[in-house]
Design a protein around this nucleic acid. Structure first.
Lengths: 206, 206
DNA sequence: ACACTAGGTTAGCGCGCACTAGCATGACCA
DNA sequence: TGGTCATGCTAGTGCGCGCTAACCTAGTGT
C-alpha cells in the first residue's frame, strides 16, 4: 500500500497519493508525531511539492478528515438496514448493524486510529464526523428499539441505554483491534457479531 | 485541581505536583502536544526545576505511567469480586465487575485519555499496563463464564468472546465518556451497569 | 549573626521543525 | 526544433523545542 514509484505524476494523482501516505503516517503516530519531511519522503517527493498541494500541514490533515467525512458508508448497506427495519426482521437488522460497526473498524484500521487521535486532540472535524456518523447511527437504532419495546418484543428498557450497550458490545472489539492492530479479535468477525446479536436479542426479549 | 500557590515546596511535594500537572496536560493534548515550558509554567515554576526532578520530558511521562501501573485498583474491590465468584452470586459478580470497569474510566478520565494516547503512540509502558490490567481482568472473567457454561447456567458460547462482549458493553461507554468528557453517558452509572448486567445474564442464560 | 544548602531563576545553546524563494527539467504542442 | 509551463528540486529562513551552565536566595542550625 501507499508505494508508487513513478515520478512526475499529475497534480490530482500526486495529491491523492500524498493524502494516502499521510493517512498511513498520521494513523501510526498522530498529527504531531509526523514531520513534513518524513511525509514528503514517504511519498517519494520533497517538501515543496507537499506545499504545492496543501497550504499547511494542518490543511493536509483537514483534507483527510473532510474527505473521509464525505465518502461515508456504502449506501447499499444503509438501504439493506432500512429494509430489514421495515420488514421487522430483528435478527437481520441487528446482524447488519453489528457487521457494519465492526467492518468500520476492521476495513481500514488506519482511519479508526486517525479519528481516535483526532478526537483525543479535540480536532473539530473529528468531532463533527463523529457527531454526524454516530448520531445517524443512533437515530436509526434507538427508535427501532423503542418500537420493539412498544410491540412487546423487547422488555421495557431505556432505549438509548440499550442502543449504546449494543453498539459497545461490538464497537469495543473494533477499538481494541484498531489500537493493537491484528491478532486481537477474540474470534472471527462473524462469530463476534453472531454472538453479540444473539446475546442482545435474547437479553432484551420479554 | 492542580493549582498550588505556595512557592518553595519540598522536593517530594514539588515532584508530586509536577506529576499531577503533567497528567492534566498530557491527558488533554498527548505527549507531543505539551512543551516543557508550558508544563513548568502550569506548575508555577521554570523549566530547570522540572529537570531537577526528571532527567528528560520522556522520563516524566514514564514516571506517570509507572506510578499508575503500581497503585492499581483497590484490592478491596478485587476481594469482593473474588468473594462473589466463590459464592456463585452471578448478579453480584457481574455488577461488581461492571461497576469496576465503568469507574476506571469515570473516576479519573485523565488517566483513561492518557493511556489511550499512549496506546495509540505504542508506548511500551502503556502496552505493559494494559497487558497486566486487562489480562488480569480476563483471567478472572473468562474461566468464570466457562464454569457457568459447564454448570448449565449459561448456554454454550465461546467464553472469551462472551467475556469480551460483556467488557465492551460497559467499557465502550467509558471510552466515549473519557474522550468527549462529561454529559456523554446515556444514563446514570448504576443504570448502565444494571441494564448491561441484566441484559448479559438473560442473554447468556440457557 | 552568618554560613550552608536545598530550591529556584536568568539567559541561552543547538537542533529540527514548518515553511519558502528561486531554479531546473521533462512532456507536450506549434 | 524550440517555446511553454506544470512538476519537482536545492538550499535555505526563522522559530520554538528540549535541555543546560551558571548564578541567586529563602530558610534553617549553630
Amino acid at each position: 500500500m501507499t508505494t508508487l514509484p513513478r515520478s512526475r505524476l499529475s497534480a490530482t494523482e500526486r495529491r491523492a497519493h500524498l493524502v494516502n501516505v499521510a493517512v498511513d503516517l498520521f494513523a501510526q503516530r498522530g498529527f504531531r508525531g509526523v514531520t513534513t519531511r518524513e511525509l514528503a519522503a514517504a511519498a517519494g517527493v520533497t517538501e515543496p511539492v507537499l506545499y504545492q498541494h496543501f497550504e499547511t500541514k494542518r490543511a493536509l490533515y483537514d483534507a483527510i478528515l473532510e474527505s473521509k467525512g464525505e465518502g461515508q458508508e456504502t449506501c447499499e448497506t444503509a438501504a439493506l438496514i432500512h429494509q430489514a427495519a421495515e420488514d421487522g426482521d430483528n435478527l437481520r437488522f441487528f446482524r447488519l448493524l453489528g457487521t457494519a460497526i465492526l467492518n468500520w473498524y476492521t476495513d481500514d484500521p488506519r482511519y479508526a486510529r486517525l479519528l481516535m487521535f483526532s478526537s483525543l486532540e479535540r480536532h473539530e472535524l473529528a468531532d463533527l464526523f463523529f457527531q454526524r456518523t454516530v448520531a445517524a447511527f443512533y437515530d436509526v437504532l434507538t427508535p427501532y428499539i423503542q418500537k420493539q419495546i412498544g410491540l412487546g418484543v423487547f422488555s421495557p428498557t431505556d432505549p438509548l441505554v440499550a442502543a449504546r450497550i449494543f453498539a459497545g458490545m461490538i464497537a469495543h472489539q473494533g477499538v481494541i483491534f484498531s489500537i493493537y492492530c491484528p491478532g486481537h479479535l477474540p474470534g472471527t468477525k462473524e462469530q463476534i457479531v453472531q454472538t453479540a446479536v444473539q446475546l442482545f436479542l435474547k437479553g432484551m426479549s420479554k
